[in-house]
Design a protein around this nucleic acid. Structure first.
Lengths: 141, 141
DNA sequence: ATAAATGCAAAGCATTTGCAACCAT
DNA sequence: ATGGTTGCAAATGCTTTGCATTTAT
């Protein structure tokens, strides 16, 4: 585990830069993309450190880990719960500006007895750009 | 790719059994669980065949591939869109009996211009059983 | 006959980990 | 000084693939 059970979390330059990078984009980057960016400022970081800190940051509530259909995770520097749109043509993940409905969690609790602490909602389809452009030029992934 | 672009899909004993196994449970099994089950009836199936067919079945619309936080996929033999509850204590994935709201997709289209063809909604928290039992005995995963 | 599907085993590849050196507290 | 953190590289583990063979049509 990254953030220890009994321990505490130290402040490190690496984690600081990683969070900066994460906060600097709305592109929901992969661990490797973050790695490449952080490297520009800290040529010696290792991928392992990126993964460890991405995990720690997620556990600290500073980031969100998104795992859609893909085989790899994407990370979101915006820890506020919000919904996403995944374009099935160009592969981009877009933040949606529609209100997060806690009513859904209440409905689940009432109807099923399962107590949700959070929920995730994702839409799949064609993003605005891909509707107008030729849809056969997908650069998916 | 499993189901070929120009080709056709043949009926095979393997795929038939795999779909049977998938339909026989509500447990949202992993590929490996399906493998073990299918083996009971066909001792010589290979894992590769399981994966290839799970993919084909998903593309055929006979199954759903679910990828939650975990590093592996789970499959759902119920191809009707429905929502899930993921218990953060015991790790089980539970089908929810609340209506699927297409209104959400319309809202997204209206507000953002992105045309959703489908959506996914998942809840995370403590399932009914884990609320009453001691919450420290989690066998997560 | 013909190409799709299988079994087997060898990759692939994102993510995790062990360990010695390092550094924040 | 203490033990969390890092860099490096090896190891994991789920999933995919190449290929010769089998099998559905």
């Amino acid at each position: 585990m990254a953030a220890k059970q009994t321990g505490f979390v130290r402040k490190t330059k690496q984690r600081e830069v990683i969070l900066e990078v994460l906060r600097s984009t709305k592109s929901h980057p992969t661990a490797d993309w973050v790695y490449q960016e952080v490297r520009k400022k800290m040529p010696n970081v290792s991928l392992g450190t990126i993964y460890r800190n991405l995990k720690t940051l997620t556990e600290m509530g500073e980031a969100l880990e998104l795992s859609y259909g893909s085989t790899y995770s994407r990370f979101d520097g915006n820890p506020e719960n919000h919904y996403h749109f995944v374009c099935e043509n160009c592969g981009s993940v877009i933040d949606l500006d529609i209100p997060v409905t806690d009513a859904l969690e209440r409905e689940v609790a009432e109807k099923t007895g399962h107590k949700a602490a959070s929920h995730r909602l994702e839409f799949y389809g064609l993003c605005r750009d891909c509707q107008t452009n030729d849809s056969t030029n997908g650069s998916l992934h």
